[in-house]
């Protein structure tokens, strides 16, 4: 297992924010973490990528305890574990040009200045041109900023990409572009993707495995399709109902009808 947690507990203050967590992520897998705000999703991924510390129990990356990684080999650990957040505007310094923000991780973690050619390659990965380099964050759209945040995370060739509500601040149409980009990059680069969302529709669509969290605990986990077809907990059922209340009957209209027929044959 690439990422593992056993009996993981964490608290910011008196109350436990995370309790008794068990989790394992295989290399190159896609894990979706779903739950309402306040359920502890962000805390969990921040712990797993080493942005916060102080958990009790075990959390391992590549067989080694994350606390130990951070103590002995923090840079190496951070190169392997990158994260993008919901609000890209807040993770990019508003006073810095995009070029400066974009090159930060390589400068900090690899102690070198990337070439323009490299930078252009990162931008090409996320479908942007070098015209954005001289801009400031406020001059770009939410979708563009999220692409830049992704390019920045990928600049150090990570093994695991954590995405914490990466599309919650975006329109449905921009969201589709960013989700496609993430699926694409994952395949092309063999990334392990851990994707957090409060929206079951997104996790259900994007991930192979999923975890349902409530009040800091995992209420259900398993292969996404199993969980969605046959939810074991009432809470998962509530989330499924909430997502279905705002679903569309089919996605992609005509094309999707064909897709349904195909899957109908395949499963029957």
């Amino acid at each position: 297992m690439l990422v593992e947690a056993h009996d993981l507990w964490f608290r910011y203050g008196k109350e436990w924010t995370l309790a008794e967590l068990e989790l394992s992520v295989e290399s190159s897998a896609t894990l979706g973490i779903v739950g309402e705000s306040g359920s502890g999703k962000s805390t969990l991924v921040r712990l797993l990528c080493g942005l916060i510390t102080g958990a009790s129990g075990t959390a391992r990356y590549d067989g080694r305890d994350i606390t130990e990684w951070l103590r002995r080999d923090a840079k190496q650990f951070r190169r392997h574990n990158q994260i993008v957040f919901q609000n890209p505007a807040s993770s990019l310094d508003p006073r810095m040009r995009i070029r400066t923000s974009l090159t930060e991780p390589v400068k900090a973690l690899e102690r070198r200045v990337p070439t323009l050619q490299e930078i252009e390659q990162w931008l090409a990965l996320v479908g942007l041109g070098s015209d954005v380099l001289a801009r400031y964050p406020h001059q770009l759209s939410g979708g563009q900023l999220q692409r830049i945040a992704i390019a920045r995370a990928l600049s150090v060739n990570p093994t695991v990409l954590y995405a914490d509500e990466p599309t919650s601040a975006l329109d449905v149409s921009v969201q589709a572009q960013v989700l496609n980009l993430l699926m694409n990059l994952r395949q092309r680069l063999g990334l392990t993707l851990v994707m957090v969302s409060h929206d079951l529709a997104i996790v259900g669509r994007m991930s192979e495995q999923m975890i349902v969290m409530k009040s800091g605990r995992i209420v259900e986990s398993g292969p996404t399709l199993n969980v969605m077809h046959n939810p074991q907990s009432d809470y998962t059922r509530t989330l499924i109902e909430a997502a279905q209340a705002v679903s569309l009957p089919t996605t992609g209209v005509y094309e999707n009808r064909l897709a349904n027929t195909r899957s109908g044959h395949a499963t029957s």
Partner: peptide, 23 residues
């Protein structure tokens, strides 16, 4: 409609899981 990640049923989901959205 194509850009919407929502699906009405588990069957729909099985057909689209892991597939690109029509952005």
């Amino acid at each position: 409609i194509g850009a919407n990640p929502g699906h009405a049923s588990a069957d729909d989901l099985a057909a689209v899981n892991g597939r690109q959205l029509t952005a």
